[in-house]
Structure formats: structure tokens, C-alpha cells
């Protein structure tokens, strides 16, 4: 459903993929949105971009990185074997689906 332009030269692209069905108990849940990072050698790893129904996380992520996100319409089917990373996203560049804490005007 979308693409993010990577800044990491090791990555070829990053796909935004909407999950239509839950394929396994440990895999991503239906109605979630994933960020699939495809490296230059073709390997891909995926993690959640949003795990609840709704577009707020996408809106925030694209708003935080203006110009790096592209909507693909109509959406095209995406079926690939990827390395699934439900926890510990350190291998991927972080995507801030909420504003950084320092920009919230928070009191700590």
C-alpha cells in the first residue's frame, strides 16, 4: 500500500504492507500494517508499523518524514518470505509513529 524511501544505503527499499489475514500465531495480526525493509541483496525483514486498525500511525510516520513516504494506489498484492521481527527493532531504522518525547513539550 506504500513505500518509504530508505536513507540506509544497505536497503533497496521499504514497503508498507497491510496484513489481510493472520497467517500464524506468532506472526503479524490481521489489519496491522508492516514496514518491510528489503536489503540490496534481496533479504527482507518486517516489523510492525502499526498493530491496530486505523491510519493514525501511518499519518504520523509520514508526517514526521515528509517526502519519504509514497502511497501506492491501487494497492498491489505482496507475498514474500521475510524475517519477522515482533520485538527488538534495532536492526531496522526506527520509524517514529509518535512524536519524539523531546518534542512533546512534556514534563519529566
Amino acid at each position: 500500500m506504500g513505500e518509504r524511501v530508505p536513507t540506509d544505503a544497505a536497503l533497496k527499499t521499504e514497503w508498507v504492507v497491510y496484513v489481510t489475514v493472520t497467517a500464524s500465531q506468532s506472526g503479524p495480526v490481521a489489519d496491522s500494517v508492516l514496514l518491510v525493509a528489503v536489503s540490496q541483496d534481496g533479504n527482507a525483514s518486517a516489523r510492525y508499523l502499526s498493530w491496530i486498525v486505523g491510519y493514525e500511525d501511518l499519518d504520523r510516520a509520514s508526517g514526521a518524514e515528509s517526502g519519504r513516504w509514497r502511497l501506492i494506489e491501487p494497492a498491489t498484492p505482496y507475498v514474500e518470505k521475510v524475517s519477522w521481527q515482533p520485538f527488538g527493532w534495532g536492526a531496522l531504522e526506527p520509524v517514529w509513529t509518535h512524536a519524539r518525547s523531546s518534542s512533546r513539550g512534556e514534563s519529566h
Binding site: 493514525e56 512534556e106 514534563s107 519529566h108
Partner: peptide, 28 residues
């Protein structure tokens, strides 16, 4: 309900106007 940064900022202002501060590591 929808997330809104202004609502978070509003709570921060209202809470601090009472003389209180959130514990370190918390936000509205």
C-alpha cells in the same frame, strides 16, 4: 477518541498550573 498532541500539551499546562510535575519519564 483520536490522539492529539494539543490535548497532551493541554494536560501538561493544566497539571503544571497546579504546581505539580509528572515523575521523570512520564508524559501526557
Amino acid at each position: 477518541w483520536v490522539h492529539h498532541d494539543e490535548a497532551g500539551a493541554q494536560a501538561t499546562e493544566l497539571y503544571e498550573a497546579t504546581g505539580r510535575k509528572l515523575p521523570d519519564g512520564f508524559y501526557w
